[in-house]
């Protein structure tokens, strides 16, 4: 008999934080796009690797290369993503160019025009790459570049080596970005929790104690889940569900002048803990809540079948 209220409370609670997580994710996505966070992190990660104080800042050269320049939305922004094949070609080109820079110089012609002249040309790209490497001072960056060309016998092999490495590195960058997203989700979660006064302790308590509220939210969840269990229809649908949730009078959301007046220090401390918990729950992200919701819904349906 007790199983149903526990399950319903769990379903209501999970669904409530799922909607909030989705809302926070939408805000977060907009915010990260506005701040060009993806592009900046990619630039930072390449700068860490390619800014070689003993030689040059190759990340600047990379971003100034016409291939990468074309990926920028505007001149002062960074591309959020660099395709693997483009990175590979540009890196080889930059290093090969070092050889040309070392041997080339500006000369004035008879008509007064200044031209850049390069006396020694090497045909094969892989040889130009190796010659470019030879012009660099010994550094970690040079050592890193040498690992690509050491066992490469052709240009294709060199490209493959760089490309494989870049793939792995981008996976790592994606991981860093996820951590960044989570951090910002927590901040947005905290903002939402404070603005709407969403205290996780009060919410859980209301779902547990208020039978009518619990039934209404569970019904709303079941209807929504039935419609969306195969695929979540993002933001718009969720936003309308959140509006429905907010209209439930018994749900302890929002601020009231009376409650502020009547609360003491103890209430305030509890509120802070509740907001922090809410922010933490929101930062878990909508996919996780959706997965848990799916599991608990199947437990409920099997429990109903057994009955």
């Amino acid at each position: 008999m007790l199983l149903s209220p526990i399950l319903d409370t769990g379903i209501s609670f999970i669904f409530f934080y799922f909607t909030l997580s989705t809302l926070a994710s939408t805000l977060n996505e907009w915010w990260l796009q506005y701040r060009q966070s993806r592009g900046k992190l990619l630039k930072w990660s390449l700068e860490e690797l390619m800014n070689d104080p003993l030689n040059k800042n190759f990340s600047d050269l990379l971003y100034n290369h016409p291939f990468i320049d074309l990926l920028k939305k505007k001149q002062t922004s960074y591309p959020p993503f660099i395709p693997n094949d483009i990175f590979t070609k540009v890196l080889i080109d930059l290093i090969a160019d070092e050889y040309e820079k070392e041997s080339g110089k500006f000369e004035q012609q008879e008509n007064g025009e200044v031209v850049y002249e390069n006396s020694k040309e090497i045909k094969e790209k892989i040889d130009r790459y190796k010659a470019g490497l030879d012009t660099l001072h010994y550094s970690d960056f040079k050592k890193w570049l040498e690992t690509f060309s050491k066992d490469a016998k052709s240009e294709d092999e060199l490209e493959k080596n760089i490309s494989t490495w870049f793939n792995h590195y981008m996976d790592q960058v994606k991981g860093w970005f996820k951590i960044k997203v989570q951090k910002w989700l927590f901040i947005w979660g905290l903002v939402i929790s404070i603005v709407l006064n969403i205290n996780a302790i009060k919410i859980a308590n209301s779902f547990w104690q208020n039978h009518q509220l619990r039934s209404e939210v569970t019904m709303l969840t079941e209807q929504w889940y039935e419609k969306n269990k195969s695929e979540v229809n993002q933001s718009e649908d969720i936003q309308s569900v959140f509006q429905d949730l907010k209209q439930l009078i018994d749900l302890p959301l929002g601020w009231s002048f009376e409650s502020i007046q009547s609360s003491g220090v103890y209430d305030f401390i509890i509120a802070i803990i509740g907001w922090m918990m809410s922010a933490l729950f929101i930062s878990f992200g909508a996919p996780l809540w959706f997965e848990i919701l799916g599991k608990i819904m199947s437990v409920k349906s099997s429990a109903q079948k057994d009955k």
Binding site: K56, L61, K101, F106, V114
Partner: peptide, 21 residues
């Protein structure tokens, strides 16, 4: 310095290659 002085000069060579005159 974030970029060394020689990096600053080498970058100038890059610009000069685009606009030699």
């Amino acid at each position: 310095l974030q970029n060394t002085y020689t990096q600053q000069l080498d970058e100038m060579i890059e610009v000069k290659r685009k606009y030699p005159n």
